[in-house]
Simulated assay, not measured.
Amino acid sequence: MTPTLNDIAAAIEEFAPLSLQEKWDNSGWQVRPDGTRECKGVLTCVDVTEEIVAEARQRGCNLIVAHHPLLFHGLKHLCGSSRVERAAMLALLEGVAIYSCHTPLDSCRGGLSWAVAKTLNLRNVEVLAPDPRFPEAGFGIVGDTEAQLTPETLVAEAKKACNTSTARCSRPSGATGISRVAITTGAGDDFIDNAVDAGAQAYITSDIKHHTFVDRADDIFLVDLSHYSTEQCAKSLLCEVITKKFPNFAACMSETEQSPIVYM
């Protein structure tokens, strides 16, 4: 039996429950014409745009499962005056539903930080900043490397794991023999103290502020990859969650999505 739109959402929420989302988040349904409709195909992405909606229709998908919510801030009208409005309007016109799995995917066990840790072959992985409500969940992870790494080797492996060619890093003069690494995909500036307290000698994340690099230079080796690059594994992880529940179902990753930031 072909799953409905609601069936797909239920499978995602079984892996990453909505109860894990932060108060400021807006995970869950963004656009849903009718949840009981048969799901013809799922397209996964990081950010929903008009181009992503068009790709979904072109590939025969009537459901987009995104990491970031399309509707993060309240809309007062749908007049096509912003990219968010135009994406929502196009989805409604084309009959494409949109679901977001944001902070639940960030903090669930096996979520995004765990996926990057797996690619880096970290061992003894545990939650970096446990959720007081759900101790088994929380933001980030910390784990041990298979062998001691130089800062340069760690950065090279992190860039490869996140499929990016650039990284902003602390000056590595005081960081040698790295054997314990913390990771928070997306913006992880707030969890540097957790990384230090967990005994990590290096911290991989994104969106680190300039003054943080200055102030924490002696505490831990900081590796700042782009926000998009650390979270693009959401596409494959969400496909994996869906196909595990529905083995014969068509779930595919966006082939047109790129980072919204370029370096010139």
Rank of each mutant, 00 (worst) to 15 (best):
M1I: 14
N6D: 14
I8Y: 07
A10S: 14
A11T: 04
A11Q: 06
F15D: 00
F15Q: 09
A16N: 03
P17D: 00
L18R: 12
Q21D: 12
W24E: 06
W24L: 11
D25R: 12
N26F: 03
W29R: 08
Q30R: 00
R32H: 12
P33W: 10
P33Y: 09
T36Y: 12
E38G: 07
E38P: 03
K40P: 08
L43R: 01
C45L: 07
A54K: 15
E55T: 14
R59A: 13
H68I: 14
H73Q: 13
S82E: 10
A87D: 10
A88G: 00
A91T: 11
L93E: 14
G95A: 04
G95Y: 09
Y99K: 08
S100F: 12
C101I: 15
H102Q: 09
P104S: 10
L105E: 13
R109L: 15
G111L: 11
G111W: 11
L120F: 10
N121A: 14
L128C: 12
L128R: 13
P130E: 03
D131A: 07
E136S: 11
A137F: 02
A137E: 07
A137P: 01
F139P: 00
F139K: 00
G140M: 05
V142K: 08
D144S: 08
T145A: 14
E146H: 04
Q148N: 14
C162M: 02
N163W: 01
N163K: 09
T164C: 02
T164E: 02
T166M: 08
A167I: 10
C169A: 04
T176M: 08
I183F: 01
I183D: 07
T184G: 01
T185N: 15
A187S: 13
G188N: 01
D189T: 06
N194Y: 11
A195E: 01
V196F: 03
D197M: 06
A200R: 01
A202W: 03
T205H: 09
D207R: 04
I208H: 07
K209D: 08
H211M: 13
A217K: 11
D218H: 05
D219M: 03
D219R: 09
L222T: 15
L222W: 14
D224I: 11
D224P: 11
H227W: 06
Y228P: 08
S229I: 04
S229Y: 12
T230V: 06
E231V: 05
A234L: 06
L237Y: 08
E240I: 00
K244P: 07
P247F: 03
F249Q: 04
F249C: 05
C252V: 15
M253P: 03
E255C: 04
E257C: 02
Q258A: 04
S259K: 05
S259A: 14
S259F: 07
Y263L: 15
